[in-house]
């Protein structure tokens, strides 16, 4: 039996879709059977971040409405034997799907896959409720900003209330140069405020923009963000991996972070 993981944050624009794409791709690189589900009905983006936007035939709402079989809606990711995207509908809205229907779907999928990863929409309304309905665990993405951390705290409360018992924090877009100047909260600061388990720290890295431009997740590449995402994947499957030392690479860092 596989695991259903929801990637969520409350606040928009903190990197849920990028995280979903990279963690999913990383787990596939670790030879896991993975399916990604875009839950942001009406504002789909996981397809473009994965570089699969031209191959969509059916979508999640078609599956729920039984207009096609699940397998027909899957888009196979090239280069992997067991890695798929289930895209969502772009011309419908969040009410096209119910939490009960999503739970039934993810319960079915986790019999076939090691990991079912859901890209949750921003907000705490129906889209969120759909995304967490069948989730076994959550990856909560935040950035070191007051608005994102406050929303992450609210999400933690809602996950608790909805019996999603396991959740881990990803601090995304950390800028060590700013942390050193005291102008950004450190990952430790964020942890102190939220007091939950940390599963990854992803530095702000312009390579993320480049990878999104081309639709190829950078997980596993030599970039700092690529390494950070791969480490998260190892931790997701239960391995202990030390956190990247973001302080010691002064020269490299100034190259990445020096530009404003």
């Amino acid at each position: 039996m596989g695991e259903v993981i929801v990637v969520t944050s409350g606040k928009g624009g903190v990197g849920k879709t990028t995280t979903t794409a990279n963690v999913g791709t990383g787990l596939a690189k670790l030879d896991k059977k993975v399916v990604l589900i875009d839950m942001d009905i009406g504002l789909r983006n996981l397809d473009v971040v994965m570089g699969l936007e031209n191959r969509i035939v059916y979508n999640l709402v078609d599956v729920i409405e039984q207009k096609c079989k699940i397998n027909q809606a899957f888009i196979k990711v090239k280069g992997y034997s067991n890695f798929y995207l289930l895209p969502c509908a772009q011309t419908r809205d969040k009410t096209s799907v119910s939490p009960e229907q999503m739970k039934t779907l993810t319960d079915t999928l986790k019999k076939e896959f090691d990991y079912v990863i859901l890209d949750c929409p921003a907000g705490i309304e129906q889209g969120f409720r759909n995304a967490i309905a069948g989730a076994d665990r959550a990856l909560i993405v935040t950035t070191p900003e007051v608005s994102a951390v406050r929303d992450a705290d609210r999400i933690i409360g809602l996950l608790d209330a909805n019996e999603v018992k396991q959740y881990d924090l990803i601090v995304n877009r950390l800028r060590m140069d700013m942390v050193k100047r005291g102008e950004m909260m450190s990952a430790e600061d964020v942890l102190e405020v939220l007091s939950i388990n940390l599963i990854g720290i992803v530095p702000d890295d312009e390579n993320i923009v480049v990878s999104t431009n081309t639709g190829t997740p950078l997980v596993g590449s030599d970039s700092l963000a690529g390494k950070a995402f791969m480490n998260i994947c190892h931790r997701v499957i239960g391995e202990e991996v030390p956190f990247l030392d973001l302080n010691k690479k002064g020269g490299f860092f100034s190259k990445i972070f020096g530009k404003k």
Partner: peptide, 12 residues
């Protein structure tokens, strides 16, 4: 300005 990170944490 140097303490804005600290401000962020205490306000949060």
């Amino acid at each position: 300005q140097k303490k804005s990170g600290f401000d962020a944490k205490s306000r949060l």
